[in-house]
Amino acid sequence: MKAAAPTYQGSREEFLTTRLDALVDMLRQYGVNWARKNSLWPLPFATACCGIELMGVGASRYDIARFGAEVMRFTPRQCDLLICAGRVAIKMMPVLQRIYMQMCEPKWVISMGACASSGGVFDTYAVIQGIDQFLPVDVYVPGCPPRPETLLEGVMAVQRIVEQEGIRTSRERGRGLRLTVQPAAELVQIGTEARS
């Protein structure tokens, strides 16, 4: 390597400094949820073709890192957002349930794509007709597969839930907001039960 060793002499002004009291102000103002919503760590439960789109969302073009959710963790104990991308077979449902149970509170679930939300075209004995029959789902992302933008909108919907719901755990949240995403990126509330 020919490159000269980097010197930091005389470049003191280039360092970025953050004032700690600004950070504390942010936390005071928005609470822990401000931090939490911007660091959702997803568990990619990608069982089928939707998983490919999920990878696309993680890659540089759509870049889920802009929402602080790029840290895909494959152990449920480190995740707070379960993205179920793809159809769930009858043998897989107990696995999915166990993964959900192992995630630490607070946790959210995105049901990505037609298959995870309703079984899609796979109306057969072997495919679960919508994971929400057996799991609490927070956000349904429509599409087959959903465009990356749609999934990002889903992540943003979860962020809004986090913001609104406070630091209550999902046990305290009841069945959750049950939000859905509209093309106009509006937040629509379709169920208000169990919200205080």
Binding site: P94, Y100, A126, Q129, L135, P136
Partner: peptide
Amino acid sequence: ERENYEVI
């Protein structure tokens, strides 16, 4: 068979 699970 596909409906036969515990609901969480």
